[in-house]
């Protein structure tokens, strides 16, 4: 009996997620349920549905792993020329493709829009002698190996920030003592407890702990300062390093021009809607809307830049 009731519960839940409409969109989330790519796949469709922009519903597939490249491979394989298929993606996938030497790349899909950005922050322990970016660079120059650096996965945005800091300071990014962590929770406790010298993570993950006095943010990775964080940008501090954890949406391989125009129009309307503005606020995302050809140009720049950084860091040959 318990099993029946549970099955009924799941059925109700699933029915809630995928209403049976005429022509639902096929949406790939190249990450597990509850993660960043999952939210980037589902929330725009929630907003479009609520605002009446696109109400035919959507079927979502979660397919995580290897920096999102497993989901990418499946998406490209299954949706050739399907004007109704889109996928969430972001900067981590750009790096993941290079790191995992993925045979399928972003050249195989149709870029549509960049929607959000999460600024990174560089932080130290509250009682650390390092007060600012100059102190950090000095410590790295004195003994690079002795500076234990924490952050997300090897080759991810956090690693790229530190590799660029090293490069700008004339240091060899391949000899950084970079220690990857699975979760922001582990990184922040290791930093607060003094096991790490410095750590990089998303602003939304580190800010609560900085506000609680556990860690001290010494720089942000955006172009200028960020409201609510009392720290300069790396650029202000004299290092030409600007990195953001951006996310967006791409369309199926070989999507028709009509299909592309249709989706760009839908996302443009969604971006203006009150529901989306509310979503950005509750998720703590920065608006980073960039559409069509501008996004294509940006994506190409990111591919080149990240490819070079990963080569410098010795992670890609």
């Amino acid at each position: 009996m318990i099993r029946t009731i549970f099955a009924a519960g799941v059925a109700v839940t699933l029915a809630g997620l995928t209403p049976a409409f005429a022509d639902p969109a096929v949406v790939m989330a190249p990450g597990g349920a509850g993660g960043g790519y999952d939210a980037m796949a589902r929330l725009p469709f929630d907003a479009m549905n609520k605002e009446g922009i696109f109400t035919d519903g959507a079927t979502f597939t979660n397919k995580g792993g290897a920096g999102g490249t497993i989901g990418l491979t499946e998406f490209v394989g299954a949706n050739q020329g399907n004007d109704n298929a889109v996928m969430a993606m972001g900067v981590i996938m750009v790096g993941g493709i290079l790191m995992n030497n993925s045979p399928v790349t972003l050249d195989d899909v149709t870029p549509l829009v960049r929607l959000t950005n999460d600024t990174g922050v560089v932080a130290v322990a509250t009682d650390s002698p390092i007060q600012n970016v100059a102190d950090l660079v000095a410590a790295m120059k004195a003994d690079l190996g002795a500076v234990a650096i924490g952050g997300g996965s090897a080759g991810g945005v956090d690693h790229i920030v530190m590799a660029l800091i090293a490069k700008e300071s004339g240091l060899d990014a391949a000899t950084l003592n970079y220690i990857p962590y699975d979760s922001g929770a582990e990184t922040v406790t290791a930093l607060g407890g003094g096991a790490l010298t410095v750590a990089v993570s998303g602003a939304s993950e580190f800010k609560p702990m900085a506000d609680a006095g556990r860690i001290r943010i010494i720089a942000v990775t955006s172009e200028g300062r960020v409201e609510g964080i009392d720290a300069p940008s790396l650029k202000e501090a004299g290092l030409n390093v600007v990195v953001g954890n951006w996310r967006g949406i791409v369309g199926a391989p070989g999507m028709s021009d009509a299909g592309k125009a249709m989706w760009l129009d839908r996302f443009a309307k969604m971006h203006e809607s009150a529901t989306w503005k509310e979503t950005l606020k509750t998720q703590g995302w920065e608006d980073a809307y960039l559409s069509g050809d501008e996004f294509v140009a940006f994506l190409n720049d990111e591919k080149t830049r990240i490819g070079e950084v990963l080569k410098d860091a010795g992670l890609v040959k």
Binding site: G64, A66, I70, S153, A154, G155, I179, D182
Partner: peptide, 20 residues
């Protein structure tokens, strides 16, 4: 799977599903 420290693949035999 992929070694988290270095990004090297270990015993994945080119199967993408084994990378994680």
């Amino acid at each position: 799977g992929i070694d988290k420290q270095t990004g090297m693949q270990r015993l994945t035999f080119g199967v993408p599903d084994l990378m994680d």
